[in-house]
């Protein structure tokens, strides 16, 4: 199967510190893959390389056929890589609907002149954007909050709004950064279902960073484990469960702290 996202031999150094060391990794088209690892394993750094925030010391990232290594974040977004944030980063003082519409920016054309003149094209484009935003809000289940400020939404709904905003980019790959952080088990379970549904209905591939093992095991088709910047294992959930190195990384020397 073709890969929607492929990272080859990514290395990131900060000064003398190697945060990510020669990690290769791919997300197959239509797949759900997870990246796990103990705290400080380099997951977030790796994510930041994918989204263009960091320039890797070496290595190449491909989105479909496009090489996106170290391109500006907005270009990468336009090519179809969308993300949510570990600590929610909505545009707090814009309405939920506007939040979603911001992400349509790169797919819209109207510049200053068209907006000022309200040309037919601009009106049509705005109308379509509004309609599409409503659809997406309804789809993730926060339609009733369309004209609320994003920061006034309940926590779980803010997470869903972030997904709606990411989907508005029409992504090929959706990166979810600890999406169930702060959720209780019922909410997490519902979120897992939701992620599956999004994958089916929106035709996206999904890459997940997650701490909650029950979520990871339930939703992922493949799992990659990072520890101290190295890839230490890769495989199906069952393979990972029984991998000695993974168990050591999680429970071994730092067993007490890693168990949470």
């Amino acid at each position: 199967m073709a890969n929607a996202l492929q990272a080859d031999a990514i290395t990131v150094q900060f000064g003398g510190l190697v945060a990510v060391n020669d990690v290769s990794f791919s997300v197959p088209e239509g797949g759900i893959v997870s990246l796990i690892g103990p705290n400080g394993a380099g997951k977030t750094t790796f994510f930041n390389v994918l989204t263009g925030l960091y320039k890797p010391t070496s290595g190449v990232v491909r989105l479909g056929d496009e090489i996106i290594t170290a391109r500006p974040p907005h270009i990468i977004a336009k090519h179809g890589l969308a993300r949510t944030f570990q600590n929610i980063r909505l545009f707090g003082l814009m309405t939920a609907e506007e939040n979603v519409m911001v992400a349509m920016h790169s797919h819209m054309r109207s510049g200053i002149l068209r907006t000022l003149l309200k040309t037919p094209h601009q009106r049509r484009e705005e109308a379509q954007a509004h309609a599409r935003a409503r659809e997406l809000l309804d789809y993730v289940g926060v339609g009733r909050y369309a004209s609320e400020y994003a920061r006034n939404l309940p926590y779980g709904d803010q997470r869903r709004l972030e997904v709606a905003r990411a989907l508005a980019l029409q992504p090929k790959v959706l990166l979810l950064d600890e999406p169930t952080a702060g959720m209780n088990p019922q909410e997490s379970a519902a979120f897992v279902e939701f992620v599956r549904r999004v994958r089916e209905e929106m035709h996206v591939s999904i890459l997940l960073i997650e701490h909650d093992m029950s979520v990871v095991m339930r939703v992922s088709e493949r799992i990659t484990v990072l520890d101290q910047g190295q890839k230490i294992a890769e495989g199906t959930p069952d393979e990972i469960k029984s991998d000695a190195r993974v168990i050591e990384a999680y429970l071994g020397k730092s067993g007490v702290e890693g168990g949470r």
């Binding site: 500006p72 974040p73 907005h74 980063r89 545009f91 920016h105 790169s106 200053i112």
Partner: peptide, 24 residues
């Protein structure tokens, strides 16, 4: 319009805006 939303998004969270496809 489109531009106004992008401006406000930058005011709110520059980094998130760029990752949502807004050229800063």
């Amino acid at each position: 319009g489109r531009l106004g939303r992008a401006w406000l998004a930058i005011r709110e969270d520059e980094l998130a805006a760029s990752m949502m496809g807004v050229p800063l």
